[in-house]
Amino acid sequence: MTVALSSLLAAVVSAAGAAGLLWLLLRTGWAWRLATDEPNHRSLHTRVTPRVGGWGIVAGSVLALAVSGVAPPWALPAAVLVGVSFADDRHGLSTGLRFGMHFVAAAALVLLAGLPGLWALPVAVLTVWMTNLYNFMDGSDGLAGGMALSGFGACALAAAAAGEPELAVPAAALAGGAAGFLVFNLHPARVFMGDAGSIPLGFLAAALGLEGVLRGVWPAWFVPVVFAPFIVDASVTLARRMLRGERFWQAHREHFYQRLVRSGFGHARTAWFAYALMATCAACALLARALDSAWTPPLLALPAAVLLAAGLWIDRRWRAWNDTQDIR
């Protein structure tokens, strides 16, 4: 079986497994027993919602990998993050314990990759950042699932084109699991992803990116560009909060996507707006990887310009909306 067919099979199996498990959890009521999200003053939703979507993505992906016979080396640290994050979804864990386990998983990834000491620390720190930024961005219907579908889908296409099943199949499985999850997460969402989904997905984006670079499948910029809509939003928001001297580690509602929803754009339109940004970044990254290097600068400049324009537009819309609130 070709790499492309193996990847397609993995995506289909994962999507069916994820959707099937989530349907079963909702149908039996177990979704509300496992973990729920209670609305609070920082939430964008107003009703109690199960946050078990991550279990669908994980189950679908594991099923797909079992069928394909592919066993990624970073599966064990990812599995540890799933367990820790599910415990956090159910009972709430201390910030120190959560971040400690994130660093343990990042250190395991660095060791498995055999990176020299000079690169080990910065790669581990970037892995922890990627692990958490995905969780930061999981706050609106359809958003994190869409990023997983677009981001891991692009990785699967690039790896399949390079004839690398060890990368293509896991990426396709994650993209398929995200598609199965989105069946229940598009607005109005019936399930949320939860930390058991968002934390491992961030880690796996970093793991796939690193493995692809080491194998020569894609350049170092490829995965950051593919996931740029999440990376830019989370990073710019964090930098702004730090510059204002705020407690940047605390939950808030100041991300670009949160401002867009709160200013009246709504969950559905915000998701589709984000999908357009994701598709632009993924397409430009895939083309820049495939074409002659002379095309790389303009193809990377385009998503940068699009994201900058989107951010400026959201900021302007946010200020205008705040002005109307002051008048009222």
Rank of each mutant, 00 (worst) to 15 (best):
A320I: 00
A228L: 14
M193K: 05
D89G: 11
R51M: 10
W23M: 05
A205Y: 06
H41L: 13
A144V: 02
T28A: 11
A288V: 10
T95F: 15
A120C: 07
A168P: 12
G139P: 00
G20I: 02
P72D: 04
L9S: 12
R317F: 02
D37N: 08
A168W: 10
D233E: 08
N135M: 06
S6K: 11
A160D: 09
R215V: 03
L5W: 15
D89H: 04
S14C: 08
W129I: 07
D88C: 10
F265M: 12
A18W: 08
I231E: 08
E38F: 09
A239G: 10
E166L: 15
L302V: 11
M193A: 09
R244T: 01
A66Q: 12
G264D: 08
A35M: 01
W313T: 08
H267V: 01
D292V: 09
L133T: 03
L210M: 04
G83D: 02
H41F: 12
R98G: 06
W221S: 05
G54D: 04
S293Y: 09
W30K: 10
A168D: 02
A105K: 06
F103A: 15
N185I: 03
P165A: 01
P188V: 06
C155P: 02
G142W: 00
L115G: 03
A75S: 13
A18T: 13
A15S: 12
G145D: 00
G83R: 00
R328V: 13
T270W: 07
D89T: 05
L149N: 02
L44S: 12
W30F: 15
A196T: 13
I327M: 14
P188T: 01
L204F: 11
A79P: 09
F136C: 01
V84I: 15
D315L: 13
P122H: 06
T324L: 14
A283V: 13
V110E: 04
R241S: 04
Y134C: 03
A66P: 03
L133F: 14
G216D: 06
R98A: 09
G146S: 09
G151V: 01
D89L: 08
L44C: 04
L115F: 12
G266E: 00
P165E: 02
V217T: 14
P298G: 09
A18V: 05
L118Y: 14
L287R: 08
V58Y: 13
A160R: 07
A59L: 15
G83S: 04
E38A: 14
L34R: 04
E166S: 15
L286R: 04
L121D: 01
L174I: 08
S43R: 05
T237R: 06
I57A: 11
E254S: 13
A79Y: 06
L24N: 03
L81S: 07
F256M: 12
G311P: 07
L307R: 02
A156C: 06
Q258C: 06
S235M: 08
T46D: 15
V169M: 11
L201S: 09
R51I: 08
G17L: 05
Y134L: 07
A160L: 11
W129R: 03
M130Y: 09
P116N: 11
F230Q: 00
L97R: 12
S61L: 11
